[in-house]
Design a protein around this nucleic acid. Structure first.
Length: 284
DNA sequence: CACCATGTTCCTTG
DNA sequence: CCAAGGAACATGGT
């Protein structure tokens, strides 16, 4: 379930586990996920390299490594697509069916697994260069947000998915933020009034922050193989509370259910070929 | 069989 | 140049 909060929780989980670990071997089981960097080049670059830092930009994971020559640092860029997961496992454990890349770290393995292979791992940071501000950073101000929305005729929900407007907002949190800000998703982005822009700016930050806080509340640790099979576990969910996360969402995937605010049934519409969920009474 | 799915990128059309 | 819409990528769930 990777949007900004899920990636952030994953980064916090991986950071202490990867720091200082050396890559002994690079096994590429699905070449498609290595792009646009040639697979051979990635393999050559990573073999022998050591993890120094793990961070995030939007929905992208950034792994900083030091190569064998120790001269310049390496930036490994990862994206989870729709179904990607990354985790460490003992070598004795069986690989998941859709394991795409396996990094041999000695005692353990770093596994990038992706059922649909929409995600990627590369040395190419070009998509990050064009990306908009980090919504939780200090420099993401309501004023800058207003300026970025000005003049746009596109529906605000569709605009929110543009990574050059704000980095990291995806289909779930776009609907959630608009519901909190009580703004109709079909409204042209450039037509939002200053109070609405401010409300949306706050709602985006609130929704993302709460999702991260929730995901980080439950300590992540190495579990059994059974726990590992539950992908949600890696986004910070306790294995015994699998539905809690979904219950936090007020509109996403809630078509027909009563709005938590006014009891009006939540509506599902299609915008830019993707589902949008909203309350027809609260949001206008 | 149908339709749906947390994302990105490319292509066509206007 | 911009916007909108669609398709592609690939696998699975319902």
């Amino acid at each position: 379930m990777p949007e900004l909060p899920e990636v952030e929780v994953l980064v916090r989980h991986l950071r202490p586990l990867l720091r200082g670990k050396k890559i002994r071997a690079v096994q590429i089981r699905r070449e498609r996920v290595i792009r646009p960097t040639p697979a051979k080049q990635l393999q050559r670059t990573l073999r022998g390299a050591t993890f120094e830092a793990v961070s995030r930009r939007g929905k992208f994971l950034l792994f900083q490594l030091r190569g064998l020559t120790k001269t310049k640092s390496i930036l490994l860029v990862g994206h989870l697509g729709m179904t990607g997961r990354m985790f460490l496992a003992r070598k004795s454990e069986p690989l998941p069916k859709h394991a795409a890349v396996v990094l041999d770290l000695g005692r353990e393995q770093f596994i990038y697994e992706d059922q649909r292979y929409f995600g990627k791992l590369s040395l190419d940071a070009s998509s990050i260069a064009r990306m908009g501000p980090e919504p939780l950073d200090k420099n993401f101000t309501a004023t800058k947000f207003a300026a970025a929305l000005a003049g746009s005729k596109r529906a605000i929900k569709v605009r929110l998915l543009d990574q050059d407007l704000v980095a990291g907002v995806g289909n779930i949190y776009a609907s959630e933020a608009l519901h909190r800000a009580r703004i109709k998703p079909q409204l042209a982005a450039g037509k939002l009034k200053p109070p609405q822009i401010r409300a949306l700016w706050r709602a985006i930050r609130q929704v993302l922050t709460e999702a991260i806080r929730f995901g980080s509340t439950i300590p992540l640790h190495h579990g059994s193989a059974a726990q590992r099979q539950d992908g949600l576990f890696y986004y910070g969910l306790a294995a015994d509370a699998p539905d809690y996360y979904e219950e936090r969402l007020r509109v996403y995937d809630c078509a027909g259910k009563p709005c938590k605010h006014c009891k009006t049934p939540i509506r599902r519409i299609i915008q830019a070929a993707r589902s949008t969920f909203y309350c027809p009474r609260c949001q206008h």
